[in-house]
Each structure stands twice: as structure tokens, then as C-alpha cells.
Design a protein around this nucleic acid. Structure first.
Length: 405
DNA sequence: TCTGGGGTCCTAGGACCC
DNA sequence: TCTGGGGTCCTAGGACCC
């Protein structure tokens, strides 16, 4: 009864592909997105030409600079263009199935159950071949209309479809027929399974478990210390028997519940340049302005505020607090400074500071009831809309900017 | 693999309440 | 004043994903 109707559609080397649309001279050359050559940061995407030299996502830009050939192009990235192309890809995807879930900026899941008769054509040998043809049409449409290469996997479960889309790259479509999942997965390294990261991978290797076939055969008592409550689910997905529920949409596309609670978090963080003379208070002030502004844009207030602090030895800690819901910069700033003073116990220099808003809810207070703080926040945003983000700042942010100039 | 920045989800301990 | 056990919220940390 089970049939491969879950589809994972993935845009190939998405950031690189968009960069090549913005600058066609990048075509055919090794491209690394994430920062300028020799600078700080990590690789967020690399072209196949760059991968041939060992450049991988997540690698430091410095490391990538050493590996990449001289004609490689390093670009910091164009976030707005990525969002724009992602939205356009989604519009195309939605023509093909009513059930679409965005998993990330370059990844969509589709459910084709019940679509077989709608799409059936004379040449199709069976329902599976119908779906395969339609998905091929979909990736071809994305390529034709947007100029973006895409791959897709089709399987009976979401996780199998995801693995299949990885196997299909570049620019391929792979269908995994019902009943063949376990054989497909067994030879793959454990790391290929969604949900197994570097930590679990290392621990599995230590137990002599390298492939998904070995993982499936391992006794539960070996796996439980590694996966805890996930153990049963991991074993099922490793056999290709994962869930056929597409799950929740990523927060930006999700609806809020009727009580006003809004899913997700809003956070901004910054790693300091080696030469930075910035002081913590000033950076925190700027971060509070950013998250506060994003919250007001979304029309939400936050009921929880969290500070993140990372020392130069990479020891990282967070300190959070439940607060009276707000999105006002100076209130966030006042509380974040309290958290900072409590958290900053070592004398070591700081590498990173972050501010996160959580427990979001709709800011449903009617306009006349706005307190002075809310009015000020909105006024600030109005000025910024007119004159740009830098037109208004908290006094501490301003002091810092003036000194820098 | 000397490690960015945006997220999600789970765990575990403690406070507090009944 | 000592006691049990469950429920829920808060907080900190960590694995994982793109």
C-alpha cells in the first residue's frame, strides 16, 4: 500500500547558483560563499569546482583560502537575493502539490499522495513513474524560469526522500521504490542520515559502527546511550521507515496560535574581529536594537530574553530571563546588561555576544494604550524607514559609532 | 575542523504548587 | 511539621540543521 509520494526538493549549491545569476562571470569557476579570501568566517556554500579542492561548507574561510586554487572567487554573499530567489522557487513548487513545507531557504518537502490520477499521462507505466515525471518537470521548470539547478528525492518517508535528494545531486531526480529503502541506506556512512551529526558519528565509530546497515544491526543497548529518546526513531529512519508526516513549516511561514503565541525565536549575535576595541555594553546595545526592530517588524513582543557569551577559549554560556513582554530597545538593553554582569565572571576576552528573544506573542495592545516605550520604539522604526537604519540609535550605540569613525 | 549566524528541539535539574 | 508524588514553569546547556 505504501508508495513513494514524499518528495524532498533541494536547490543545488544554492548560494553559489544565485551568485552566478548576479555575476555570470562566476560560471565554471570555483566559487566560495562566506567571506573574502583570507578573512574570518566560515564557508556557507561552495561550488563543485571548489569542492574538488576539498573546500566544504562549515570550513573556516582561512582554511578554504589555502585549499582553493588561485582563480577561485570568494564572495561574502547576498542574503536578500537568496531570500528573493527562495520565495520564487517556492511559488513554482506550489504549482505542483498543494502540500508544501519549507524546511530551509533551499529545501522544500512536498506530499504527492492522491495526485497520481491528476497527473497521469499515456506514456506512464505506473503511478510511481507518473510522480517521477512530474518531479522532473518541476526541477526543469525551476531551472528554466529561475536559472537555478535543483535535485529531488522521492520516497515513502520524509527522511528517505531527503537522503535520496542528496544521492541525486547534482541536477538529478531519484525515486526509491517501496521496499528497497533498507538496501539503499545500508551501505551509506552513518553521517548521511538526518539526525546524526559529528558527535553521534564519533561515538558510533568508537563502537565500530560505520554504516547505516551496521547501525540497524546493532543492539538497542549500544545505541541508547547515544540517541536517548531518539533511539527508536533513528533505527526506523536508518531502515527507511521514517515518518511520512511533513511536519511543521519553518517559523517564518508558520501561523501563530489563537492565544497570540508565535512560534520561533529572534536572535542576533556577533563575533568580534581580532582587532576590535568594541566594548560589551555597546555591542549589546546594538544587538538589542536589531532584535527589537525585527520583533516590532513582525508585530511581536518577547516574553523571554537570553544573553549568549563566548570567551576566546570558546567556552560558551547563556543566561536567560522571563520578562514582562516587550520589544522596546532600551528595556531589552537594561535587562541584557543585568544578565551580562551576572554572566561575565572570567577576565578572559570575549569572542562573541548574542541576544535572543523567545516566547514571542502578538503585540495585541491597541495603539492608544501604548506606553511611552512602545511609542518610542515605533517612532524609531518610522524614522529608520525614512532615513535608514543608522538614523536613530541608543546613546551607547552612538558613542561607539562616533569613536569608530 | 581553531570554528559564522540564523534557527529547532530535547534534556535535566530546581522551584513551586497542590 | 514532616511527608509523597505529579504537574508545570523556568533556566542552562547541548546536538543538530542549513
Amino acid at each position: 500500500m505504501l508508495a513513494p509520494r514524499m518528495c524532498c526538493l533541494d536547490l543545488d549549491t544554492f548560494f553559489v547558483s544565485v551568485e552566478r545569476l548576479l555575476d555570470p562571470s562566476l560560471r565554471g569557476r570555483p566559487v566560495v560563499v562566506g567571506g573574502r579570501r583570507g578573512g574570518r568566517g566560515v564557508v556557507t556554500s561552495s561550488s563543485y569546482e571548489a569542492r574538488a579542492f576539498g573546500v566544504r561548507s562549515g570550513m573556516s574561510i582561512r582554511d578554504a583560502s589555502e585549499r582553493a586554487p588561485r582563480d577561485a572567487v570568494f564572495v561574502p554573499g547576498h542574503g536578500e537575493a537568496y531570500s528573493d530567489y527562495s520565495a520564487r522557487a517556492r511559488q513554482i513548487v506550489e504549482r505542483y502539490s498543494p502540500i508544501v513545507v519549507a524546511a530551509s531557504i533551499d529545501e522544500h518537502y512536498l506530499d504527492f499522495r492522491g495526485c497520481e490520477r491528476l497527473y497521469r499521462r499515456d506514456g506512464d507505466t505506473d503511478d510511481d513513474s507518473t510522480i517521477l515525471r512530474v518531479v522532473r518537470e518541476m526541477t526543469a521548470t525551476i531551472d528554466r524560469e529561475l536559472g537555478l539547478p535543483a535535485s529531488a528525492g522521492i520516497a515513502t518517508s520524509k527522511s528517505m526522500a531527503k537522503v535520496a535528494s542528496g544521492l541525486a545531486k547534482p541536477q538529478g531526480v531519484l525515486i526509491v521504490r517501496a521496499g528497497t529503502e533498507a538496501d539503499r541506506l545500508a551501505p551509506l556512512p552513518v553521517r548521511k542520515l538526518p539526525g546524526i551529526g559529528p558527535v553521534a558519528e564519533t561515538r558510533l565509530h568508537a563502537l565500530g559502527i560505520d554504516t547505516l546497515g551496521q547501525l540497524v544491526a546493532a543492539p538497542e543497548s549500544m545505541l541508547r546511550p547515544i540517541f536517548g529518546a531518539y533511539t527508536a526513531g533513528i533505527r526506523l529512519t536508518a531502515r527507511g521507515e521514517g515518518s511520512d508526516e511533513l511536519g511543521r513549516e519553518r517559523p517564518a511561514f508558520r501561523e501563530h496560535d489563537p492565544r497570540g503565541a508565535v512560534a520561533g525565536t529572534i536572535s542576533n549575535e556577533r563575533t568580534f574581529a581580532e582587532t576590535s576595541r568594541d566594548t560589551a555594553g555597546e555591542v549589546l546595545s546594538e544587538l538589542c536594537e536589531r532584535v527589537g526592530s525585527r520583533a516590532r517588524h513582525r508585530g511581536v513582543v518577547a516574553g523571554q530574553l537570553t544573553l549568549k557569551l563566548r570567551y576566546t577559549d570558546f567556552h560558551t554560556l547563556t543566561r536567560g530571563k522571563t520578562i514582562a513582554p516587550t520589544s522596546v530597545d532600551f528595556e531589552l538593553h537594561r535587562i541584557i546588561l543585568e544578565l551580562y554582569r551576572e554572566a561575565r565572571t572570567r577576565t578572559l576576552p570575549i569572542r562573541l555576544l548574542g541576544v535572543a528573544l523567545a516566547k514571542l506573542r502578538l503585540d495585541s495592545i491597541q495603539l492608544p494604550l501604548f506606553g511611552a516605550g512602545e511609542r518610542r520604539g515605533i517612532a524609531v522604526d518610522r524614522v529608520r524607514e525614512k532615513y535608514g537604519y543608522d538614523a536613530v540609535h541608543l546613546a551607547t550605540t552612538l558613542r561607539r559609532r562616533n569613536r569608530r569613525d
